[in-house]
Design a protein around this nucleic acid. Structure first.
Length: 389
DNA sequence: GTTCTAGAAC
DNA sequence: GTTCTAGAAC
């Protein structure tokens, strides 16, 4: 975990000096120390965790550090100050639009604290951050990683990454596009055009513009793409049901599990591999469990592999159908789908699968039944630090 | 897939 | 009274 964090640390500009200049001697040469440190972690992974130094003030807002381009967010939106001994970060709202902690507005000029487990939204309930304190020693390998990251940051930015680009209009999407560098040597993010699509495998056609065709639109939108290669594209789920929720879609038109044949095996294997790489690049990978799989009877056309963290900590998770679609056998593991293709040449969905969506709410970790969605969500917070893997 | 909202549940 | 669900509409 820490190796990952350390490996992706960004140098951020403090109000007066850069971090590098402010670091104590031990930390200046390397971040590998036993000094308590605090990390500000962007939940959707849009940028690397930022190091908050003990009792040093850091002002953040719209800018390259956060990659926030939303005009509603001030360039100096919040002032942060970590107290590593006491284990909290004070947040002062400087901007005019609301910053919030756990959905409670801070208010301009006001100051509140944010602790691990709480969520800071930079502005308008968007751009979620959490804080993490640590005293752990960071692996020496990290310094190499950091230099790699620094090198990477010197590369020319792709079109949508340029800070000079038009600011994105304010949107309700809780997970703005991720502009991570390419995951693979031959793969690019937001650059190459997709190859021409193969002919649709087969499915009942829905009129274009119907809601069920939405993924086909999203996957072609460069702003939605977080990864792409010659065979697949990854987008962030528009309504994520957990802190991390990506969809891996093939360029090739495959309507659903129903049309899969043995010849699709390699494609599905690649989709899973790309999903696993997304997890590997996730700053929270070490402390979160993930699952990769398909909904047995998806609502949206165009086959899509869900890559979803098992915290299910998301305001978009609202009802029993949402919950059961990810925590019952309605969710079929990617490897099971691939195995079925190998052994049977097709993917069979058991009769009565749809009924699984109506099952009572049951915690996916301890299996205790919960009466309502709010109760379930409250219950899930008790597992926030439960080791799940 | 989501949003909206009537009415059930509390 | 409020909270929450579930079905219709999109």
């Amino acid at each position: 975990m820490l190796r990952v964090l350390c490996g992706t640390v960004s140098t951020v500009t403090y109000r007066y000096k850069t971090v590098q200049h402010q670091l104590p001697r031990a930390s200046r040469s390397s971040v590998c120390s036993k000094m308590p440190s605090c990390w500000l972690i962007r939940e959707d992974g849009t940028h690397a965790p930022l190091l908050l130094h003990h009792l040093k003030t850091l002002v953040l807002g719209r800018g390259p550090e956060t990659k926030i381009k939303d005009q509603k967010c001030s360039r100096e939106q919040v002032e942060l100050r970590a107290d590593c001994n006491k284990g909290y970060v004070t947040v002062k709202q400087l901007g005019v639009n609301p910053s919030s902690v756990d959905s409670v507005t801070v208010g301009k000029g006001n100051q509140v604290t944010v602790r691990p487990g709480q969520r800071l939204h930079m502005v308008n309930q968007l751009y979620a951050y959490t804080v993490k304190f640590s005293e752990d020693t960071i692996a020496p390998k990290a310094s190499k990683h950091r230099s790699e990251i620094n090198q990477r940051s010197k590369r020319p930015l792709s079109e949508v990454e340029e800070d000079t680009a038009e600011p994105a209009p304010p949107h309700k999407d809780p997970a703005p596009p991720h502009k991570d560098p390419a995951l693979h040597q031959n793969a690019t993010v937001n650059s190459a055009s997709p190859p021409k699509k193969a002919a649709p495998t087969s499915d009942k056609p829905q009129p274009a513009g119907h809601w069920s065709q939405g993924l086909k639109v999203s996957m072609q939108d460069p702003k939605m793409q977080v990864y792409k290669d010659e065979r697949v594209v990854v987008i962030r789920d528009k309504y994520p049901k957990a802190r991390y929720h990506w969809l891996v879609l093939p360029w090739q038109s495959v309507s659903s599990l129903k049309v899969l044949q043995a010849e699709h095996r390699d494609l599905l294997q690649h989709m899973q591999h790309v999903g696993e790489q997304m997890i590997q690049k996730c700053p929270d990978a070490a402390r979160l469990k993930f699952r990769l799989g398909y909904h047995a009877i998806p609502s949206m056309s165009h086959i899509h592999l869900h890559v979803i963290s098992q915290d299910f900590d998301s305001p978009c998770l609202k009802n029993k159908k949402h919950w059961n679609s990810f925590t019952t056998d309605y969710f079929i593991n990617s490897e099971d789908v691939i195995r079925m293709l190998e052994t049977e040449g097709r993917v069979s969905v058991r009769e009565g699968t749809e009924e699984l969506l109506k099952q009572p709410l049951r915690c996916h970790i301890c299996h205790r039944e919960q009466n309502t969605i709010p109760q379930l969500k409250q219950h899930l917070t008790t597992h926030l630090h439960t080791p799940t893997h």
